[in-house]
């Protein structure tokens, strides 16, 4: 079973070639990513692990088309995102990628339902259909009864569940989760991880999460370890069990 799930056989939904990102801090140039090449196959759950400051969030932003690399290329579905204009990039963010953030990032002035339906409106869905699909999504994440609440009236875990529903709004092929459990306690974090796992199985979505939460390892098909702006090692699910086993 694991052999036919190897990255080489499957279609790479995300591919980066020698991605370098530098930031200019005054006269000092900081090289955050020093040449990252990776393939992420479709329908897998991939975790990008690494200590803070390792460049994992920067890599995450590149993969999500939120930031452009200084050099190197990022391909989403074999399309070089540097070649996309503002409209195509917006379309990509709207239809193909769902984002989940550490700080939930719901729009504070909107209700849970409005937060979930906003990407659908951007995608051109009519209001009635958006509300209907939004309610179904909220029901899926178990928050149907709180649809009319503002983010400030929801707990952290509930906000993150709304964010998961929002990420799924337009049926994306990729979900990018940046430290999805970073601001949650142990149990709530686990709930979100399980929710993500369930969604990836039910909806055939590729989930990529940047994290340093070890709970995430149990549900990942593949873990990419980043250290000092370089790929340290890539472990598959079966290898992972052993190394986690040795830690414990």
């Amino acid at each position: 079973m694991p052999s036919d799930r190897s990255a080489n056989v499957q279609h790479a939904i995300i591919r980066t070639t020698n991605v370098v990102k530098t930031f200019q801090l005054g006269s000092h140039t900081l090289e955050v990513l020093k040449g990252i090449s990776l393939n992420i196959a479709a329908d897998r759950h991939v975790s990008i692990m690494g200590p803070s400051g390792s460049g994992k969030s920067t890599l995450f932003n590149m993969i999500g088309g939120l930031d452009k690399p200084t050099s190197g290329k990022v391909f989403i579905n074999e399309v070089d995102i540097a070649q996309l204009d503002a409209y195509e990039l917006a379309w990509l963010r709207c239809r193909k990628i769902g984002y989940i953030f550490q700080t939930f990032n719901l729009i504070p002035v909107m209700t849970a339902l409005e937060n979930v339906t906003l990407p659908m409106i951007f995608a051109g869905t009519g209001n009635d259909e958006a509300v209907e699909r939004g309610m179904i999504l909220l029901k899926t994440v178990g928050l149907a009864d709180r649809f009319n609440h503002k983010p400030s009236e929801l707990s952290g875990g509930q906000q993150q569940r709304v964010a998961v529903a929002r990420a799924l709004a337009n049926g994306p092929s990729i979900i990018l989760a940046d430290e999805p459990t970073g601001n949650l306690d142990l149990t709530t974090g686990e709930e979100i991880i399980n929710l993500l796992k369930r969604m990836s199985e039910e909806r055939k979505v590729t989930i990529i999460s940047a994290t340093h939460d070890f709970k995430m390892l149990n549900v990942s098909d593949e873990v990419i370890w980043i250290r000092d702006g370089l790929i340290d090692k890539i472990e598959q699910r079966d290898e992972l069990r052993i190394s986690v086993g040795t830690i414990e």
Binding site: A90, R93, C94, R95, L106, I107
Partner: peptide, 16 residues
């Protein structure tokens, strides 16, 4: 700012 960033992540154009 944050709200604007979120909207852009969800696919909003500058013109929106």
């Amino acid at each position: 700012f944050r709200e604007i960033g979120i909207m852009k992540c969800l696919g909003a154009l500058d013109s929106f």
